[in-house]
């Protein structure tokens, strides 16, 4: 059985070493000027350094360029892509077709992963972006396990699926936290309310807490629970999903390191001895549960949930 790539989002260059040791195969990094909702801010030097460390360990580094660009930022794309080519990034993650067009112009051999987060909902569309040049599609979190498996069956591109952590639910271009403060009459100077402020929206009806933060791309709202599929990996691994992702945003390096090592174990055990996986999976789950931060429950996202419309 083929092992999937274990992909994680580090929060700093220092994490690359630690998470590699813990068993990660690949990293997604980037800066908010080009990418969305990153676990850490990696300026060019950091990207370069990360790639150096990772490549020495035979690991891959992908760079996020999946923001929605307005005209003013389109001008910056070519230079950044040329830089990523120079430092030998392993792939660029894009959502906006402006990136795809620019890659064709300046770095035609650069690998592309398609990730808009919410719109990769059927296999045909994954293959469409494949025909346009993407090597991989990152599936929307809002489809269920059967749909994931069916998509993998029909896919002509690699398929990446998030199996752990927080997911994004919402992006507005407006500064919604700042606007609320100004409406209240406080905080009259314009400033962004970033991830470090640990703000969340409380929904009393569902007793849910949705993390919220602002950056140059606007306001982001995140899911109230963390996906945790560590005890449900068998079907995904049987289907030979190409890459499974642990989202590290808004988590400590210690937490991410531990989680990566547990998933590493789960994947290795299952691919070598499936029966043994079924013996240990509840313990693996319990180990994650034990380190969950305040206010973060675990669930299985949409893998076993139906949506209606």
């Amino acid at each position: 059985m083929k092992k999937p790539e274990l992909l994680v989002t580090p929060s700093s260059v220092d994490d690359i070493e630690r998470l590699s040791e813990a068993g990660a195969d690949a990293f997604l990094v980037g800066e908010e000027h080009f990418g969305l909702r990153l676990a850490g801010e990696f300026k060019r030097e950091d990207v370069k350094e990360s790639i150096k460390i990772a490549h020495a360990k035979n690991k891959k580094v992908y760079v996020a360029m999946n923001a929605l660009y307005h005209n003013d930022r389109v001008e910056d794309l070519a230079d950044y892509i040329a830089f990523l080519q120079l430092v030998e990034a392993d792939a660029i993650v894009f959502g906006d077709p402006a990136v795809l067009m620019t890659v064709k112009e300046v770095a035609p051999n650069m690998k592309l992963h398609w990730n808009t987060e919410t719109t990769a909902t059927n296999w045909y569309t994954c293959n469409y972006w494949g025909r346009k040049g993407a090597k991989r599609a990152v599936l929307a979190r809002e489809i269920n396990l059967d749909a994931v498996l069916e998509t993998k069956e029909h896919a002509e591109v690699e398929i990446e699926v998030q199996i752990h952590g927080m997911t994004s639910m919402f992006q507005s271009k407006r500064m919604l936290i700042g606007n609320y403060y100004r409406y209240q009459g406080k905080n009259l100077k314009i400033e962004r309310h970033g991830k470090e402020e640990a703000l969340y929206l409380y929904d009393p009806e569902r007793d849910n807490r949705y993390p919220i933060f602002e950056d140059v791309n606007g306001t982001h709202i995140m899911s109230p629970n963390d996906i945790c599929m560590i005890d449900e990996l068998d079907e995904l691994l049987d289907a030979e999903i190409d890459s499974v992702k642990i989202e590290g945003i808004l988590k400590s390096p210690d937490y991410n390191e531990k989680v990566v090592s547990l998933y590493r174990k789960a994947i290795d055990v299952y691919t070598e001895n499936p029966d043994e996986y079924f013996n240990i999976k509840d313990n693996l789950y319990a180990e994650i549960e034990a380190i969950q931060p305040k206010n973060r429950k675990l669930d299985t996202g949409f893998f076993f949930k139906e949506t209606v419309y």
Partner: peptide, 29 residues
């Protein structure tokens, strides 16, 4: 780029099921 409805009420906003969860009241904490 909004799936609030999916998460809050299992209604898929990108298939027409949005229940305008954005317009509800929340406590900022």
């Amino acid at each position: 780029r909004c799936v609030l409805s999916n998460h809050m009420t299992a209604r898929d906003s990108n298939r027409g099921g949005c229940c305008q969860s954005c317009r509800w009241d929340y406590d900022l904490m």
